[in-house]
Design a binder for these strands. Sequence first.
DNA 1: GTGGTCTAGACCACA
DNA 2: GTGGTCTAGACCACA
Lengths: 129, 129, 129, 129
Amino acid sequence: MQFDDKIPIYFQIKGYINREIITGELRPGAQLPPVRQLAIDLTVNVNTIQRALSELTAEGVIVTQRGRGNFVTEDTKILAELKQGEVTAQLATTYDSLAGLGLTPAKMVQDLRDYIADRVAKGKEDAHA
Amino acid sequence: MQFDDKIPIYFQIKGYINREIITGELRPGAQLPPVRQLAIDLTVNVNTIQRALSELTAEGVIVTQRGRGNFVTEDTKILAELKQGEVTAQLATTYDSLAGLGLTPAKMVQDLRDYIADRVAKGKEDAHA
Amino acid sequence: MQFDDKIPIYFQIKGYINREIITGELRPGAQLPPVRQLAIDLTVNVNTIQRALSELTAEGVIVTQRGRGNFVTEDTKILAELKQGEVTAQLATTYDSLAGLGLTPAKMVQDLRDYIADRVAKGKEDAHA
Amino acid sequence: MQFDDKIPIYFQIKGYINREIITGELRPGAQLPPVRQLAIDLTVNVNTIQRALSELTAEGVIVTQRGRGNFVTEDTKILAELKQGEVTAQLATTYDSLAGLGLTPAKMVQDLRDYIADRVAKGKEDAHA
DNA sequence: GTGGTCTAGACCACA
DNA sequence: GTGGTCTAGACCACA
């Protein structure tokens, strides 16, 4: 994994694990690799992994069973909030960017619709090809 | 200006000038600063500025009048395409990101509407405060 | 400061700072000693102080101004909750203990009243002496 | 049994036996296990058991019948005082703690009432679940 | 085996 | 100056 050296590594690891969970690669209740294994895989120190996991535990996203390992929570409410949080963060970036280009909110929605229509049309062409 | 060292500097300068034009800080027909001045302001080599400008000229975004300087085009069609290109690039990023989170196109539009509604509501509160 | 080696030191430090705040020795907005000074005063490692402070920051009890120091929050709601949390924790211990001795809830309240009456009476005697 | 090494073991054994009596696990008139058995069960020296029992005998809580063994007293007054002593000790701790948090006596009683109300409400929910 | 805590010390970012 | 992050490594607790 590549780390952006302007953002704390533990923070990027949190995001990485969150994405794994949201995209379903780590399913609810699934066991995470041992911290020492994650440290090797991501080539960071065990303490850095621990920091990421301890914050995720505090947020309720993962649950630790001492002596057994770390597991993705099965609390659907937390998992739904996790996903919605990522969606909202992306939309905030989009909104700021488009507002910076001078678009009104109504225009943003319209342009997104148009973009999707184009892309879907193109996707179907590709599929037919 | 800060440059991201993973992307060619001339390319970033193109983006910078494009944004100045799209946001209206450089209006149609406006004269750009002399290349030597731009080089000093952005702390890059004159050749790097020249490369950015030559591509923008090739795209019709700026027009060079030999001996007089560089000017933003007054061709509204080109300017409109320039802006739409930036918008589309942003929407592509947004779409990929949200699709990666498992959202359907319809959900993307709905969530964007909701996000805007929330944000506008919040903005009004702030304005009243 | 004496630490109970059955409870994480960083956790005990959190409690210590919380008590300083609740009892008013650290007032809202007050600056905490630098982390390195706290580490010396409490004879623990700087990282251990950092862990306590980072959790307190996450809880909103203290606010960090990067490069300037750590300060007690001025958010009265958080401070009120902090105090109520300590009170509730003490009452939970009391309840469990008295319930274990076979007291009914009504009896607990009555005995507390009686105890306070006795103690206040005694305090007044002491004051008169 | 776990012993706190900051408090004399015989003293902790006294407390242990007192609690057994107060909670009714050792009823009035009941025979205690032989001292040698207690020594084995608690993994302490027989002399330590003897010291605890001799103090309890001096306090009238247990009665020794030479050649037959040790028995919990049937004197209800002593047993009532024993229990009340434990209750008072707990209330003293509670009072000191809450007074240290700045609560007035009236507030202590009110908060205890509130805490009990909450806890009873929660307990009923749990029972229904 | 698993995770949790702590230390010592380096180096960075902000003011 | 101030706090923040990370590493290397020791040692503990739980199962």
